[in-house]
Amino acid sequence: MLLLAQSAQAGPSQEAVIRLQVASLDANVADTVRQSAVMNDEKRQWIEQTDRALVIQMAENKALAERLHNQRLRRELLQTIHYEAKRAGLEPDLVLSVIRVESNFRKYAISSAGARGYMQVMPFWADIVGERSTDLFNVRTNLRLGCAILRAYLDQEKGNLSRALARYNGSLGSATYPNYIYASWIK
């Protein structure tokens, strides 16, 4: 994570991209209205399929079942994941895999390095975009920022997903983290 902080602070163009991508964080109300109003077939199908897959996984994983037991909240989370992933130009399944690997769906997860929430966003990113670090536990803020960061790294790496994922994790040069994400994605 220290590498992530150093690389993020070293690249002002990267910061600018992320600022642009999260500039509308304050438009949460408008986004919520738009998000709930637009439920196309692709989105509905993804939510239904993913929800069924999570229910199966919950049967095998007690901790996951405790976190995701409420169907309404689980579907709201999936709807937000889909929305924020698409908003950033990412595949929702990729974002879901990052969440599974980073926090295993623990909303209030804090890593030993201080990364927070579902997508394990470092607090310095909140400072860069003008948010409070406590907002990183807000589902929308965490997912929007996490997706924006991943998108910026994907752009920086010219579409090389393995390198972008390694940057996201602060482990550029190692295939371990991207391989965890790919394994989760297949699951």
Rank of each mutant, 00 (worst) to 15 (best):
118 Y>F: 07
105 F>Y: 10
68 L>R: 02
32 T>G: 15
124 F>V: 04
35 Q>P: 10
108 Y>N: 04
129 V>M: 06
107 K>S: 09
94 L>I: 09
116 R>M: 14
58 M>D: 06
89 G>D: 01
128 I>Y: 03
140 R>M: 03
64 L>Q: 03
65 A>D: 00
46 W>D: 09
93 D>Q: 11
79 Q>M: 02
123 P>S: 09
119 M>Y: 02
64 L>E: 00
108 Y>A: 06
125 W>Y: 13
103 S>G: 05
51 D>K: 10
53 A>N: 08
136 L>K: 09
34 R>W: 13
47 I>L: 05
42 E>D: 15
31 D>E: 12
56 I>L: 14
124 F>C: 03
138 N>D: 15
106 R>I: 08
135 D>G: 06
125 W>N: 00
127 D>C: 02
91 E>V: 08
39 M>K: 09
130 G>P: 01
69 H>F: 07
136 L>N: 09
83 Y>S: 12
133 S>W: 10
113 A>E: 05
61 N>L: 01
33 V>R: 14
120 Q>C: 09
117 G>H: 11
135 D>S: 14
135 D>E: 14
120 Q>N: 13
117 G>W: 03
40 N>D: 15
70 N>I: 03
68 L>M: 12
49 Q>Y: 06
38 V>E: 06
114 G>Q: 12
139 V>N: 08
119 M>P: 06
131 E>D: 05
94 L>H: 06
71 Q>W: 00
61 N>M: 08
118 Y>G: 00
55 V>E: 15
140 R>V: 13
45 Q>G: 13
40 N>R: 05
81 I>E: 11
104 N>A: 11
61 N>V: 02
55 V>Y: 01
78 L>H: 03
43 K>A: 13
108 Y>S: 11
84 E>I: 08
30 A>C: 12
116 R>G: 03
121 V>C: 06
106 R>E: 15
49 Q>P: 01
71 Q>P: 00
108 Y>V: 07
121 V>L: 05
49 Q>V: 06
118 Y>I: 01
125 W>T: 02
137 F>T: 10
91 E>I: 03
130 G>N: 00
52 R>S: 15
